[in-house]
Amino acid sequence: MKERLQKYMARCGVASRRKCEEIIFQGRVKVNDKKITDITIIDDEKDIVKVDGKVIKPKDKKIYIMLNKPVEVITSAKDEYNRKTVLDVVKIKERIYPVGRLDYDTSGLLILTNDGDVAFKLTHPSKEIDKVYIAIIKGTPSKDEIEKFKNGLKIDDYITSPAEIKILNVKGGLCEVEITIHEGKNRQVRKMCDAIGHPVVALKRIKIGRLSLGNLKEGQWRYLTKSEVEYIKSL
């Protein structure tokens, strides 16, 4: 079967399709012992693909895991500074990788898998999947600030899509809010809160679409249920 190299790599459990593209551009992939640095089409029945010198093959057993990521843990398979990663928390024999990312100082719901198609569905911008966060911020947003947050804010070189922010609790100069976005740009929630003058003190993701953290405690993980996997595949 002929398919794009990055899709084949994702099907083999190397990483998400986007991450696989990066790996290709970095010159870490060989097809039939020829270094590949651009997107190409391969034949999975004839071509031999190596990543970092190791032959890769499609994974038969698909793994789907939900982790409540602790703070001070890197959303990566490995870290050049030897900091703790999500794979130090989720220790299984199968090779898996995180879908999307949560910042070092953000906790909460993170999916890990070896299924490239599922990773693609959860991360592609066209799906516009809601992501819900609970944030502790400094001060209490005014009605005007809340409207600005909801309608879109200028951050770096882009304007955010419409979002939701709901005040849950106010105490001692801090405010607990529920924030819903469907984008996933770098440190977006923190930057949005900064933009309205209410910096984030603590941040936790509690939902991705219909996937909910529930009572899963920080640092704990579990396999997704059959219905949760079917939901993702239906996106």
Rank of each mutant, 00 (worst) to 15 (best):
L102D: 04
K61G: 00
P141Q: 00
V99I: 13
K78M: 11
Y104V: 00
L110D: 09
D103G: 06
G139I: 07
I65Y: 01
R83D: 03
N68G: 05
V89S: 12
L102P: 05
V132T: 15
E94R: 08
Y104N: 02
T75C: 07
S142W: 04
I96Y: 09
S142C: 07
T140G: 02
V73F: 10
D103F: 11
I136D: 10
P98W: 02
I63C: 09
A135S: 06
E72M: 14
M66A: 10
T123H: 00
L109M: 11
L122P: 08
A77I: 15
Y97N: 00
K91F: 01
D105K: 15
P70I: 02
I134H: 13
T75K: 06
Y97H: 13
P125L: 10
A135P: 04
L102C: 07
L87P: 00
K131S: 03
K84V: 14
K61D: 07
Y97F: 15
G139D: 08
S76A: 15
D115Y: 09
I111K: 01
Y97S: 11
F120A: 13
K69H: 08
E72R: 15
N68W: 08
I74R: 06
L109E: 04
H124E: 14
G108F: 03
V90M: 09
L67N: 09
I136F: 05
V71I: 15
Y97W: 13
K84N: 02
P70D: 07
A77H: 12
R95C: 00
V118H: 11
P141Y: 08
P125N: 03
N68L: 06
E128T: 11
K62R: 14
G100W: 07
R95H: 02
P70Q: 13
K69Q: 13
I65R: 09
T123D: 11
K91H: 05
K61H: 12
L110W: 01
A135C: 01
I136H: 03
T75G: 05
I63R: 04
L122H: 06
L67P: 08
K138Q: 14
M66C: 06
V86Y: 03
K127A: 05
V90S: 00
Y97K: 09
T85M: 06
K61V: 04
P70F: 01
F120N: 15
G139Q: 04
Y81T: 14
K84R: 14
S126L: 11
D88A: 12
D88S: 04
I136A: 01
T113C: 02
Y64H: 02
D130Y: 02
V73C: 00
K91S: 12
Y97M: 10
V118W: 02
S142A: 05
K62F: 08
I137P: 01
I63H: 07
A119P: 01
L67D: 12
A135Q: 11
V90I: 09
V73P: 08
I92N: 13
V90T: 04
S126F: 02
V90Q: 10
S126E: 13
Y81C: 05
V71N: 12
P141A: 00
G100C: 01
T113L: 05
L109N: 13
P98R: 08
L102M: 12
L122D: 10
K69F: 11
R101V: 04
L112Q: 13
D79N: 10
I111F: 04
E128R: 14
T140V: 14
L67W: 05
I92D: 09
D88Q: 10
K121A: 13
L112W: 05
I96H: 03
